[in-house]
Nucleic acid binder design. Structure first.
Lengths: 156, 156
DNA sequence: TATTGACTTAAAGTTAACTTTAAGTTGTAG
DNA sequence: CTACAACTTAAAGTTAACTTTAAGTCAATA
């Protein structure tokens, strides 16, 4: 029925010290103790822990996660503020995915660049190539690497 | 023709101290200096800087980025090792995108959860709902939060 | 009941990636 | 030629998120 901190940590794939640290920081107000002071993680605690994992993996700092957990503790009056936090995090994740996709394109371009250089035996081959030699779908990434900004005037 | 560290930093949207730090750590072997020791960033340096930005934003640690830059410095003999690093980073980014999408589903579920609770005025409404009340596309995220793992036996 | 492995806390240590500070130098504008 | 803003380095400081250590307690088993 209950898990100790070591068992819970194993189930979650984290170090026991991490869970103790989170608890100390106030992220786990829902975890109860035995009379002797031993933490007892119950089945329902893992839902909170999985949400923490989700927020953490999407880049939310621990102090904001604590803020969310504090809101959970105050009850129904904080529902819309919790909803706001979730919505803002959703927006951030959508942005992160977009940014990763852009960076993936740059990596795709670099993959092509080094594949081509590898075949030729030298990076110098790229001096002999024109824009048309670059695969269509990699051209925008190439331009991004070159720098989209208008080159600023010299002494200005 | 050339940018100082402050101008380059502004163009890249980072602090000048960040560029000096990267230089000190060996990430910018391509940046030349005036006789007086002032860094001169040329147009072509920004391509290297943008790649560093890309690697950093996809989570590569600075020491690995330095490794990549060191490989660039040795010339053509390191082409296939550079290709390997790029390919490994591509794999990592694909994994990151997948993970963000999974976590986004959990946030989507939580969005629905709090929207529903907000309408009802209480989170208690969820006790009255059955699986069928959860929108189809959010059910798997819900199960993820509940914990997929088989509940382990009590005293074991 | 004694042992033992896992638990407890508080405090100090670690790591990455910067940022700040201090003391001094460079180079452009007046 | 002097001011002065922006540059230089080395070293120390910061922050987040843990991890480790030390000293002690709990509770299940022999």
């Amino acid at each position: 029925m209950f898990y100790t901190v070591g068992e819970a940590a194993k189930r979650l794939g984290v170090a026991p010290s991490t869970l103790r640290y989170y608890d100390k920081e106030g992220l786990l107000p829902f975890v109860e103790r035995t009379d002797g002071g031993i933490r007892m993680f119950k089945q329902s605690d893992f839902e909170g822990l999985r949400l923490i994992e989700c927020l953490k993996k999407t880049g939310m700092p621990l102090k904001d996660i604590k803020r969310f957990m504090d809101l959970c503790s105050v009850g129904d009056e904080s529902i819309s503020e919790r909803l706001d936090m979730i919505d803002r995090q959703r927006e951030r994740v959508l942005g992160q995915i977009e940014q990763l996709k852009e960076n993936l394109q740059i990596l795709d371009y670099k993959h092509w660049y080094y594949e081509t250089a590898k075949s030729a035996g030298t990076c110098a081959v790229h001096a002999t190539l024109t824009k048309e030699d670059i695969p269509q779908e990699l051209r925008s990434a190439r331009e991004c690497l070159e720098g989209r900004e208008a080159p600023r005037a010299v002494n200005q």
